[in-house]
Design a protein around this nucleic acid. Structure first.
Lengths: 190, 190
DNA sequence: GAGTACATGTAATTAGTTACATGATTGA
DNA sequence: TCAATCATGTAACTAATTACATGTACTC
C-alpha cells in the first residue's frame, strides 16, 4: 500500500523539507505518535518519489559546502496525495503489542513477578503521559479552528494523550486483579 | 527480537497444538487483539523452533490419511519461554495508525469529506466494540482467579474493549471539533 | 580541538504479505 | 457432488531494522 509514501508526501506538501527533517518528524516529533521510519527507509523512498515525478528538490548550501536537498511537491504529487487522503479504509488488524503478549501468558509467571512488570509499565506510561500533556499545555491554549494545519496536530496529540491515559487505566485494573490496591500503589511510588 | 517465536512458543506451552490452530489463534481468536501472523510465516517459524530443539511434534491422523503435526514444547523451549516472559522492556515506538496519519493531514481536505471519514471509522469501531463486548459477556461472568489461564485471556480482552471505547471517544471528540453534535450524529444514524 | 548535531546515502538482514501449490475431510 | 473448512507447505515480493560509510557545521 506504500503508506510511507503518503506520510512523506503529506509532510512535503505541508512545506518544503529535507530528508533529514522528515526523519526527525517521524522519529521524535508529533508524527511519532502514529508513524515512524528510520532515515535508511526515507532516503530510498524519496528517490522513488523523485523518479515517479511526485516530488522535486533544490539544493541549498549550508555554511561553506554542506549541501542539503529541500524537497517540494509537484502538481502530480499533490493530486495523488489528495486522492489517497480521501479514501476510506477498513480498520484492519490490531497493532502488535509485546506487553499484552506477555500479559496473555502471565499465568506461567509467579504473580509477584508479573506485578513487578505491571508497575514498570505503569511508570513508563505515566512518564510518557506527562511528556505529552506538557507538550499539549505548551502548544495550545484552545482548540485550533477547522481547516487549519494546527487542528491536525492537535487531534493526533489529544489522541496520543487519551491512548496513554487508557493504557494506564488498563494497567491499574490488571494490578487490581492481582490484589494491588491504590494504597499499595501510592506507597510503592514513594 | 524474534517475537513471533515467543508468541508461538507460548501457545504451544499452553497446550499441544497444530500449525493450523496456531494460525487461527493469531488470525481470528483472542490473540488477534495484540498479535497476528499468516500461516506462511508460522510454518517456517515452527520449522526453525524444531531445529532449535525448542519444540517437537507427533503426527496424528485425521480420518483416512490426513496427517497433522501436533506440536509440544520441550524442556529447553519452556526454559527459554519463561526467561523471555520475565524480561521487562521499554515501551518502544508507538504503533502505526493509518487513520491518524490521515487525520494529521486532514486540513488538505474539505471539512465535510473528513467528517464523512470520521463517521465511517466511528461506525466500524462501534461494531468491533459490540463484537468484543458480546464475547466478554458470553465468556465471563466474573474476573478469573490469579494464576489461571483464564485471567490472561480476560485481561487482554478487557484491554481490547477499553481500547475500542477510547478510540470511539477520540473520534467523537474530533467530530465535535468539526461542529458535529450528538444530535446530528443521532440523525445521521437513522 | 572535541563533541554533538546536521546531512545523506548504501548493504545486509529480518519480518511480514501476497501469491502459488496441493490435497483431505465434513456436512449440506 | 459441491462448498467450506481443515491441513501444510514454498516462492516472490515488500517493508523495516541494523549496521556500514562518509563528511560538514556549530558550540563549548
Amino acid at each position: 500500500m506504500r503508506l510511507l509514501k503518503y506520510a512523506i508526501l503529506g509532510l512535503i506538501n505541508r512545506s518544503p523539507i529535507t530528508g533529514y527533517d522528515i526523519t526527525k518528524e517521524l522519529d521524535e516529533r508529533i508524527m511519532a505518535n502514529f508513524w515512524h521510519a528510520k532515515h535508511s527507509q526515507i532516503y530510498p523512498e524519496l528517490k522513488k518519489l523523485l523518479e515517479e515525478g511526485l516530488v522535486e528538490f533544490q539544493v541549498e548550501v549550508q555554511g561553506e559546502k554542506l549541501e542539503k536537498k529541500v524537497y517540494t511537491i509537484t502538481k502530480e504529487g499533490k493530486n495523488e496525495f489528495r486522492e489517497w487522503l480521501l479514501t476510506d479504509e477498513p480498520i484492519g488488524v490490531t497493532p502488535k503489542d509485546v506487553f499484552r503478549l506477555r500479559t496473555f501468558f502471565s499465568d506461567e509467571l509467579p504473580a509477584k513477578d508479573f506485578v513487578k512488570l505491571l508497575y514498570s509499565q505503569l511508570s513508563m506510561h505515566k512518564h510518557k503521559l506527562a511528556y505529552l500533556s506538557d507538550n499539549m499545555a505548551k502548544s495550545y491554549s484552545n482548540v485550533p479552528m477547522v481547516g487549519t494545519l494546527e487542528l491536525g496536530d492537535y487531534m493526533v496529540l489529544e489522541g496520543a494523550i487519551m491512548r496513554e491515559k487508557n493504557v494506564i487505566d488498563w494497567l491499574n485494573k490488571c494490578l487490581f486483579y492481582h490484589g494491588e490496591t491504590k494504597d499499595k500503589k501510592i506507597l510503592s511510588d514513594i
